[in-house]
Design a protein around this nucleic acid. Structure first.
Lengths: 222, 222
DNA sequence: ATTATCGCTTGTGTATACACAGAAGTCGAT
DNA sequence: ATCGACTTCTGTGTATACACAAGCGATAAT
């Protein structure tokens, strides 16, 4: 790609996703330009791309800042994520090949063996879901799912920390695979949807918990 | 917005959607800059935004061209559209208010009375679907649905020309509304999905028909 | 005659410079 | 002392200029 602009957007993207640049952070072009040792031009391009991915908000004449969606908005995004993943699972069930089934069982085993290591489980979980995206056999759907997954990453960080959630997640994975293996597309979709929607609920729980004890997150303006 | 860049992107967007700039058209920055009487800078911004909307393709060092997806890609996009709309219908059925039901019936009547006027039906059809998007009560989902609908517009132009398709579409609308009215979310989703998937099938029919008699569309390179 | 290489042209990528709108800080008035 | 208007300053939006890669054509060699 236009190397410089692309490098910058990738770097910023990862920093946003990893939480180094938390939601609401202002991104000023001159500062970024100096930081990366380039002019403002490629910086602007990078910011536009991030806005395209939905990671930052580009207010006219008022600068750029890392997207800071309201709680309801985040829940809405999780709801759409649930529907996209349900669609993937549905298509998986209808088009499942022995190879796909085997791959899913592989990820299932990886998840099981990582049940005591949160970050390892995180990685295995990621692989499992990606396999389902790809297993849909619809490359456009796969891309859309991956993109939205990325956009939600900053808000999913706390999810799996909840003690019992991890084992429950594992059990849900098994149910999903069973439904896909049985070719039961409706069941696969429903299981997958529920599996994701729980994350939205967990998120609201988390937020409620915060707003009781910690007022710092109040400035979720917009 | 940054007026100029925004005006340009809106103008180009409508021209792409209306088919004035057909898929595959090369968009060269100097030419566009001269045409709009501005420098290349805002033109580049406009093109980046269009790339963000998925209306154009931005190949590095090789310029911009109106997105020219392969046939399978278009079918994939219709498949995702079907899933998004199914999700909207599902949520409509679960959250349906009397107001929404009334509005849907209104669009239904508009569609009926326009059954002999293709362009009028097109408008009424558009309104019907938008109402279902909005009726989901999920603003993010609504936006995503509207966006993908827009992206598919250039490839949907020929759809409703097919003689019997129009009445069939009308009947499907009625079934969808009935399911929503009954609060049967699964039925609503299924009906809506089928309603959209037919468009994808129609599209492949159309393409097959073309590639038999007309070789002009061969250069769907990509 | 065909092909390969070189140079030119065209168009994209980046840098710099200027114009202007918003925000903030200062000064004055009540 | 507080509030309001004005000035200043920071940061975005646009224009222009330069750098360089890719495509094209012409020329020359086999």
């Amino acid at each position: 790609m236009g190397s410089v602009a692309d490098d910058i957007s990738e770097k910023l993207e990862s920093e946003i996703v990893e939480g180094i640049l938390p939601p609401g952070t202002r991104l000023e072009e001159p500062a970024l330009a100096e930081r990366f040792g380039v002019s403002r031009t490629p910086v602007r391009e990078a910011l536009q791309r991030l806005a395209a991915s939905g990671l930052v908000e580009l207010k006219p004449r008022r600068g750029t800042q890392v997207l800071n969606p309201s709680t309801v908005r985040i829940v809405e995004m999780f709801e759409v994520m649930a529907e996209l993943e349900a669609a993937c699972a549905r298509l998986c069930a209808r088009r499942a090949t022995p190879e796909l089934i085997a791959e899913l069982h592989g990820w299932l085993r990886k998840c099981e063996s990582a049940v005591h290591d949160v970050s390892a489980y995180y990685a295995a979980n990621r692989g499992f879901h990606s396999a389902i995206y790809a297993g849909s056999g619809n490359s456009f759907l796969t891309e859309q799912a991956e993109l939205l997954h990325l956009r939600l990453t900053p808000f999913r960080r706390q999810q799996l920390r909840v003690p019992r959630r991890l084992r429950q997640s594992l059990a849900e994975h098994a149910m999903i695979v069973a439904a896909i293996e049985a070719g039961d597309d409706a069941a696969a979709a429903m299981a997958q949807r529920a599996h994701i929607l729980i994350q939205g609920e967990r998120f609201t729980d988390f937020m409620a918990q915060l707003s009781r004890g910690d007022a710092k997150l109040q400035p979720r303006s917009k």
